[in-house]
Design a protein around this nucleic acid. Sequence first.
RNA 1: GCCGAAGUGGCGGAACUGGCAGACGCGCGCGACUCAAAAUCGCGUUCCUUCGGGAGUGUGGGUUCGAGUCCCACCUUCGGCACCA
Length: 831
Amino acid sequence: MAKAKDRARIDRYDPAEIEPRWQARWEADQLYSARVDQARPKFYFLTMLPYTSGDLHIGHWFAMGPSDARARYLRMRGFNVTFPIGFDAFGLPAENAAIERGIHPKDWTYRNVENMRRQLRTMGAMWDWEREAISADPAYYRWTQWFFLKMFENGLAYKKMAPVDWCPKDNTTLAREQVIGEERVCERCKTPVIKKDLEQWFFRITQYADELLRFDDIDWPESVRVLQTNWIGRSQGANVRFRTEAGDPIEVFTTRPDTLWGATFMVLAPEHPLVQSLTTPEQAAAVEAYVQQTLRQSDIQREAADKEKTGVFTGGYAVNPVNEERIPVWIADYVLLSYGTGAIMAVPAHDQRDFEFARRFGLEVRPVIRPEGTEALDGAAMREAVPSYGAMVNSGPLSGTTADRAVARTTEYLEQRGVGEAAVGYRLRDWLISRQRYWGAPIPIVYCPEHGQVPVPEDQLPVLLPDDVEWRPTGESPLKLHPTWRHTTCPICNKPAERDTDTMDTFMCSSWYHLRYLSPRNAEAPFDPEEYDYWMPVDTYTGGIEHATMHLIYTRFFHKALRDMGITEGNEPMLQLRNQGQILGPDGQRMSKSRGNVIDPDEQVSSYGADVVRAYLMFGYRWAEGGPWSDDNIQGVVRWLHRVWSLALETAGQERASDPAGERALRRHVHRIIRQATNDLEAFEFNTVISGLMELTNALAEARSSGLAGSPEFRKAVEVLLLLMAPATPHVAEELWARLGKPYSIHQQSWPTFDPAALAEDEIILVVQVNGKVRDRISVPADVDRAEAERQALASETVRKHLGGKTPRQVVYVPGKLVNIVVSSTPGSGA
RNA sequence: GCCGAAGUGGCGGAACUGGCAGACGCGCGCGACUCAAAAUCGCGUUCCUUCGGGAGUGUGGGUUCGAGUCCCACCUUCGGCACCA
């Protein structure tokens, strides 16, 4: 009695028992530790490192579980695969959480790291924990600072004034997420937020803009390449130097130099340095009020093309260098200081935004382009701008220039007269890396009254973040407030000097973490060159599409800049990129603690086991799409694994004489699924990997009920099923593999290969259509020829009925697929 | 607003280069097993139907022998927009 009960317990699929056991065994055996091995082909599989926000949510599993499955698959294919993990640990949320809970950001962060490590281990992923790196460790950020110094040494880091969102009451910089609503108020005190100029560090990413537009060497999704291309926003045109009546130059960038004679006014960004000198006393109050109003808006609000145009006349005038015409200068929020030169020549006849502005304020609309085949435009009567190219008219000496030469000829004309030249403009701005915050890597620069900006010598790195700091909001940068920290001596003259009290953007940490994974404990260098030579570049990189324009541009820039310094090799850090979508909360909204819709993977794992959760996330969603969390379908995966469990174990001891026809059919099925699983894993189509495995399971169940269990082909099929399952459901596959007496470990076996010969069929089904509608299906020999296929199709009873005695006008034959008999030119009327 | 992606049964989703729409699951219905229930197993399940068939992949057009797939216009949802990461 006790014995039977015992066996019943053991024989039931019990993930809670088998999963921790195998995880411990794999770790003890260092099964997934990947070391440099010149004899084997390497594969660097990287998945975006998680932020130490506290708890993993199910979205992390969605990102990492399928990635792990694919990394495991590649390992079975014979690659020496490294699949490292680490933590992005600096950043604003640590400070926010610290303020809310009165806990130090460092303690909060490292407590979270502990918890996340524990959670990650339950996934049974093949992480190589020896490569773990945490960006907030001094041993890590030492090298983040070192890279800053390299950028500085190589002229890629510089300081300039730039606006930040600023709360005038708290006297502090605000992040975008701390500015609330259309009204743009401070999240803490609800005070209206303004822009404030601070001197900040930038990296010259624009120097690499053209190279960043080239994607020849990399297999990245089209959507990401397009997003990056648009983000960089290269446009070709000309710089034109207008001047104020006082003689100050106002440079503008335009993509349409050919419309220069149509400039009837100029618009400056309200923050433009010349606004003050241009403004006349009568306009001063209106201009000042408008500037203040603009400072309260975000760039997105300012650029929105659908809102009503606003602006104010400065009272000043500029002179158009090609015709010496005096035109009024306005300010308007739709001109941004951060794009181009912060000033535009307005050509309302040929630019829609300028047109709307001109109509709103009664400014002249003067057409200077006549598109081919159209009447001459009448500025007063126009209802919208005409942005097309055309022959130049009303353009002084250049009138009559044809569309194909207009831009080039105007540019030459500008160059000859020394008032402009061909130029390329980018939407991309240099990368602002200064943050007025505590929880980040300090910028390793010292300000000496005598020597100015002095880099901290490399042997003095890291510049440690002090622990004893007031990180609550006080109105000042926390490091500035520390009694002693910023006081130091100049590395050159040894006289008193001050440290930079800003820290670096966390995107800086994540721009090179893939290099630190190579040798996380190296104290001599950011990474070990031998490891670099073997592992880099990253072969597959997975992560969310939301990183398309920031992290994924920054890390490419970083790599290219380091390449030019001789630190890295090759043009790109990551060869293949694939993006997964997001798992939303059950309410269809993005998961967040404040919404209370976060799905905790721990609960799912304790209810169902890691294998079920992994397989369910692969099966239930399109990986590239994601979607709202729901566990409605998870029972299907639970049932599937139970079925595999009993199928494998109940048939284990059986022996049976062969049944050639049944076995051939089973073998055909097995090889079809091998092909499908292989192709789908290659293509990151994880849902059909699992559905294929379910189909194979169903085929095995059917084979068992038709008495095939125990036959050689059946046993082979069970083995193949387990091998194909190993990447997705590593624990149950390992357990059943062991119970079938196979050698440890299933994860060290080769991936099954597919035999095309096994798929050959004698008979195929041809679809027969009449006028494109399916009317019958006929079984024909696989090698049937056209004449025979048509003959059999026309012989079909239902087909004859639908032909209604008419003679076929056309017969379309697609070998192996269908015969379509067309009797009428009007679709459907033949029926 | 701009850039990008996606819209297919009651639900998640499948459909290689234009060729059987709805694979695989969930849910639901019926049946078997059971005293009963759960679990499990089997069968069915896009909608309408006068049982001949007809309609059907966000909406409206178009190309084609044939369109979920290609083209044009539109609608809705999601992601990003430079200090969340």
